[in-house]
Design a protein around this nucleic acid. Structure first.
Lengths: 339, 339
DNA sequence: CCGGGGTGTGTTAGCGCTAACATCATTCAC
DNA sequence: GTGAATGATGTTAGCGCTAACACACCCCGG
């Protein structure tokens, strides 16, 4: 009833052709959904394929068709929530579109590394590349990608050397600051991300703009590095500032560290100080108190990244969507200022 | 001095051969480091390669050599700290070994999905597969992988259908429980992970064993699902238990949720209740209070996973290392019980 | 009853590379 | 000086597939 259960060597197209009594080209036509095949023939071929447990060889296919149906993703070597979520979103979107994903991570972000990663991925035959490029160095590197390589940048600035997909970080920061001001705070302090991260800069811009527009004093931004540790350290600085009643942290981890630092000093959140984070990590809702934060839709980032890349592969016409709007999740870490 | 900067079509091996005045086979020899090439010839070829910016075509290479130098990684579609860190560790190790990584994520874990992912990856021509398989369903699926497919399971039970690499979860749990008992607690409660996760089961076993060995009462395990939310919910149950002074949570997120729940009820950590987590997420150190937790070396998991797979590809001899030992990070969430 | 235009199928020629063997110089022992 | 061993290179034949064309065969109108 069934063929040899463990053939020595996996079946190839000619084996299928022989068993079905047709030429290998007819098998190829069936596989590629050509309409020029009689239904009865198609059935014979399909049966033979199943019987031999045949799977087309992707490399042979790719060699002749010049399409691997694999996209490369370059990402910073980290488990930071943003990049990790974006990678997942991209993989999901790619899978839906019938593409595979090959990854290359970078230990250190600089031009040489990035171009090398692009080379490696290109060498492996990917059809295009998505670069998760939140840092300025990356944006710069994008300007001299090898000619002919199709790439899109996500989380990069709009004037990168490639079409880009991004969340509107300025708008996100404004959401946070406006919320705090509307609660009655006179001004808002800011713990920023590292200066070479685009998102960090944009969040600083949004924060500053918003304060300036309402004529509020603009305190100096306190520099952090995304880690809870740096948020904790920022707490030390903030504690010495009498009028600081509201803080916008550029990500949730720093907000968490800050909360720890304030707690140690007996400063209550939100009674004494209100805090807003950024990212909405899964834990944000369960901190003490639950953290008000700005949420970005990373699945959407992934979908748009893949969509933009596929468009680029097909039409060769770069296209850039407007940035994705983030949303504010109000929880219990924000309240009116103490009187 | 230099060739046409933007050739219409990328250079292939014959182009290099022509420019260098040798046969394409000599170029191939240079590329593959054959000793049978005169140094002067090698130089000529190398210069031609650089001049034409030639890169070998991976698909053509793979087609004939039957090696793609890409490994596939199947992972659960999640940004849980463990699996995400493991993926990163694997990529790093693979890169060091000269391999690329193609990923396939699973929305839902069941046999059909896993086998499909294996098929997809195999179809894309990977040399072998690493399955991040923390759930029982995966272990079961491993038993009927397509013949000839080389695979290794990480975070799976030792009697999976494939060679495996794992951290000793039982030992990790014992570390946590012993620490709490040594502080003077009469017994230790446990918030477990989902019952279909191997790691969750092993941590329950370690916890129970340890208590039984010293003749301590074994309270019922409280079921969680890894999320901070479930840890928070467990807090409700625990609060009703008068004698509960020590809790071992099966991961840091649940510990975090629990801390929140206790805080809301005015229960102090560690004065009233001691808590130990598992994983040592980067934030653990900055929770209120800093969390004592069990740390697993995911980089080592990645390295061993790749090493095991490559050994399998070379010798065809399955080999399984002893499990990796986790370590305890003592911080401030644990103390002697209240008297 | 014959030519034109579909259909369905087979044949041939590569894609860019490596493996295997063939070929031609050298070198060196005797 | 001769033959065998060795070294450096070229030639040929695929890997498994798709693209392009060639070829039957059928149906149809004139």
């Amino acid at each position: 009833m069934s063929a040899d259960p463990s053939p020595r060597r996996p079946a190839v197209m000619t084996d299928v052709a022989r068993l079905a009594g047709v030429s290998h080209q007819t098998v190829s036509r069936v596989l590629n959904g050509s309409p020029r095949v009689r239904p009865t023939t198609r059935d014979k071929v399909l049966r033979a394929i199943k019987e031999l447990d045949y799977r087309p060889n992707a490399m042979a296919r790719g060699l002749v068709s010049r399409r691997s149906h694999v996209v490369g993703v370059i990402t910073f070597d980290t488990i930071l929530f943003g990049p990790a979520s974006t990678l997942l979103g991209i993989e999901r979107a790619a899978r839906t579109a019938g593409y595979g994903v090959s990854i290359a991570t970078l230990e250190r972000l600089n031009r040489a590394n990035i171009l090398e990663a692009v080379d490696t991925l290109t060498g492996r035959g990917v059809d295009g590349i998505i670069i998760i490029a939140p840092q300025l160095a990356v944006t710069a590197a994008l300007r001299d990608l090898p000619a002919g390589m199709r790439a899109v940048a996500v989380e990069a600035s709009h004037n990168a050397g490639a079409p880009s997909v991004a969340v509107d970080q300025v708008a996100g920061a404004r959401l946070a600051v406006e919320h705090l001001l509307s609660l009655g705070h006179k001004t808002v302090w800011h713990i920023s991300g590292p200066g070479d991260w685009l998102e960090a800069r944009d969040r600083v811009s949004g924060w500053r703009q918003c304060l300036e527009e309402v004529g509020a004093a603009v305190p100096p931004a306190i520099g952090g590095d995304w880690s809870a540790r740096s948020g904790y350290a920022a707490g030390g600085i903030l504690a010495g500032q009498a009028g600081a009643t509201a803080v916008f942290a550029a990500n949730d981890q720093m907000a968490l560290g800050l909360m720890r630092a304030l707690h140690e000093r007996g400063v209550r959140v939100p009674e004494d100080v209100s805090i807003v984070g950024f990212d909405d990590i899964p834990e944000a809702e369960f901190l003490s108190p639950p953290l008000t934060t700005v949420r970005q839709d990373f699945d959407e980032v992934g979908r748009r990244g893949i969509a933009t890349l596929l468009r680029l592969l097909e039409d060769d016409e770069p296209s850039t969507d407007p940035p994705i709007a983030p949303t504010l999740e109000v929880r219990h870490s924000t309240a009116a200022p103490p009187r």
